[in-house]
Amino acid sequence: MPAYAAKRFAVALLVLFVVSVLTFTFTNVAVDPAIAIAGEGATDAQIERLRREYGFDRPLYVQYGEWLSGTLAGDFGTSIRQRRPVLTMLAEKFPVTATVGGLALILAFVVAVPLGMVAALRPNSWIDRFALGFAVVGMAMPTFWFGLVLIIVFGVTLHWLPVSGTGTAAHFVMPSIALSYYSIPIIMRLTRAGMIDVMASDYIRTARAKGLLPRTVLFKHALRNAVIPVVAVAAVQFGHLLAGSVVVESVFALHGIGYMAWEALHAADLPVIQAVVVVLAGFYILLVFLSDLLNAFLDPRIRIA
């Protein structure tokens, strides 16, 4: 297990490094930082002066090295627009996004796994059909639209929940629900497929032949194997959730990373864009790493080669 973990960790670091190189390169190619800083109406001479002043005239790899050593030391630079350290901005916004994303993922699992299980145990029953319908609607419905429906029903009409902001725990309810619905279909269908497969397997027949009680067969022998493929996609799903977070944050006026990225993109605020991409990528890579570990824990065939 330690060897496996070390290997996965090395891979994760490598991926993160590649991502940072690509991010830095592409953002610098897409946006001329000197022009972005100078703002509209600056003369060529002014831009040229800025370029030299900030060192943008040096080769890209030198700039990357500088940026990387800063980043590793926890210094993401200064926002061009807000003239504040990017790290401070991240520290403000990240918890909001992480809360919404985390709650959404938990909610998605809590709803989707049991629903997928029940659907698998009673294929073609009314509950299976209901689950399928639920999944199809979830896949077809855009997140922003679902968010708006929630706002109209529970915020405007029923006055149960606040419609925007981050003041209280209640503020996070609707955004999390809106975001989770995006992941429910895939997790549910995977659980269902995994469960149907596993229930038809020889070792489940063995478990029954040993006289084990139905609940032991189901929860100990079947579920454990059925969730292995689900765990593998969970991290990927969380990545999607972070992406979907941009939409949800703007619908519910939450000031999270997504909102910050959206602002930065409009302002061509290079240090902020780079930091957001790298932090989200890093977070995503970390989750993939954790799900690899969890999978290895669940499946001894991965753990013990």
Binding site: S201, D202, Y203, R205, T206, D299
Partner: peptide, 10 residues
């Protein structure tokens, strides 16, 4: 089928 009759997880 001895190859598939035992649970791989335990």
């Amino acid at each position: 089928e001895p190859m598939t009759s035992l649970n791989p997880a335990y």
